[in-house]
Design a protein around this nucleic acid. Structure first.
Lengths: 142, 142
DNA sequence: CAAAATTAAATTGTGCACAATCTAATTTTG
DNA sequence: CAAAATTAGATTGTGCACAATTTAATTTTG
């Protein structure tokens, strides 16, 4: 096999590994506020705008209802969100932050700093990683 | 929140997204040979050296026994590998390729090309992504 | 307007990923 | 050498991730 052909594998594995590694860095920090990384992503989407439908959240995070429905039910159990079908279209479930869910935002503001610290990577490298990653995602999706 | 603090989140989400996206690109291609991406990784490790212990595989792929044991049992069910405890140390399980498992290597040689095609990303960008990703992994692990 | 098509979530089923615990075997050490 | 510590996997339980199917509601269209 030529090096060129092997390259795909040689890139994909590190990306897969890095994603797991990053989530592992978040894990203990998020655990203190009783969230998983995907739950944290959902909460961040809601902190930006406190009422959104399931599909709006899914679109922003690239997650389908099979993933979101049980995750959202867990957030509901934790009293961080409410789930309510819309009167105007009963197929649509509106997810809204509870006061507790909204308040968690403050505590969460400390997370990026702690993660950055835990990752121990320079701004320059983080920016480089962000730039190339976003570029590749855009290409894949197009 | 300063931009600096937000950066961690702004990097982690794309990496998490890209990893999923990449696996999604592999999925239909690997499905033709009845493998998932993590199963493919294990097979690649074994194609390099056809008998290895569970922990050796786990070390190379950063996966623990809770992940590998059921995955390896599925590969065993598919007759791609065998699992046998070592006589010299009964705690150790030796994983070995079956002839079928070894033969699958040939079919698998086509995969990187097809994935590269599917990703539709230039060699330069792939190399850049590989370089920065590996650099960051190394830093995180140290 | 009613049948057909579409849409939004939920459900079901499979397969990771990983923490925590358990079991059995081997090493270490007093 | 026997008790203690360590090691290698297996098991259990929780939580994604996603395909495929189902259900119920809404839109479209003949």
């Amino acid at each position: 096999m030529t090096d060129q052909l092997k390259l795909a594998n040689q890139v994909c594995f590190p990306v897969y590994t890095l994603a797991k590694e990053i989530i592992n860095q978040y894990r203990p920090i998020l655990k203190e506020m009783d969230l998983t990384y995907p739950q944290y992503l959902v909460m961040m989407v809601l902190w930006e705008s406190k009422e959104q439908t399931v599909s709006e959240i899914g679109e922003k995070l690239n997650l389908d209802s099979g993933t979101l429905t049980p995750l959202l039910k867990r957030l509901e159990t934790k009293k961080l969100i409410t789930r309510k079908r819309k009167k105007t279209d009963e197929r649509v479930v509106a997810i809204a932050l509870t006061p507790e869910g909204f308040e968690k935002k403050e505590m969460a503001e400390l997370i990026p700093e702690r993660v950055a610290e835990s990752l121990n990577i320079s701004m320059e490298e983080l920016n480089e990683l962000k730039r190339i990653t976003e570029k590749v995602i855009k290409k894949i999706k197009s």
